[in-house]
Amino acid sequence: MIDYSEKIKEISKRLLEEGRVDIVIGFKKGTVPMMNEPCLVKSSGEVEKFVWDSNCGINLANYLTGRNEKTGIVAKGCDSRNIVTHIIENKIKREQLYIIGVPCKGMIDKHRVAAMFDGEIKVVDEKDAKIIIKGENFEKTLDKESILQSNCSICIHRNPVLNDELVADPVEEQRDVDRYEDVRKIETMKPQEKWQYFEDMLKPCIRCYACRNACPLCYCPTCFVDEHRPQWVGKSQDPTDLRTFHFLRAYHCAGRCTDCGACERACPVGIPVRQFTKKLEKDCLELFNWEAGMSLDVRPPLDTFRPDDPDDFIK
């Protein structure tokens, strides 16, 4: 995957020099292990910054909102689906974009890896499908497969669905993946157990809104939690208000979420926030046969009416 970096630099340089784009959005090497920083490059002289490895979990589509330049953007499978969603929702024009597609084999789960070791992880290197983790008194080589972000290990759209150029040949898509094992587990619980499950899950929340802000879908000028006339949600750490935030945020992602995992990755206290959105994603698939961001030509289910829409819930 490392050689993707060179290809990204090469393409970006060409696009900037030819004037195809004004800017390119990609990643630069992070300052701590398992982190890369999204960055914007304006001239071909700067493209050397660009890097690609298994730590590019942030969704770059998030950086497209409100841009009006001709924009080159590096996009893995999920990013590309969110770009499609952005286009469908009129947040950006297809003509403005040059999508540098990255066939992706998943990103590593920094929360999980950090929790695997007692001491501090100082260096994380990767070679082929192996990840080498080094600390002061330890060194361990792990299969990348075994430490993927949970959304990546169940991903079935690793290749960009929309692109102008790929940095490499498409990778093989995962087949026969059970995407909703965890959701089904919750579905079988009794109401009180469900309530408790989410109550426990949200306990560590500090309401920093990193999950919301890392999400490319959350581009509202003013979020409902920030409205104060009227104020929809209390601002304290009251559990009902916390739940309202998470629950309504998830609702706003219904039929739009691509399960890119940026929310979970961003959370500073390791809450599996996807447990909310995944249920909606599963429902959209089962009720409307819908997966978000797969095509520019189909309107999303919550956007359209079909006479055969499921309506059993209406008495």
């Binding site: 920083e37 999204p38 960055c39 914007l40 998030n62 950086y63 500090i206 309401r207 920093c208 809104y209 990193a210 919301r212 802000n213 890392a214 961003a266 500073p268």
Partner: peptide, 13 residues
């Protein structure tokens, strides 16, 4: 500021 997503993580921790 480019990469900042304007969450409150830095200030809250």
């Amino acid at each position: 500021a480019f990469s900042c997503i304007n969450c409150g993580t830095c200030t809250y921790v």
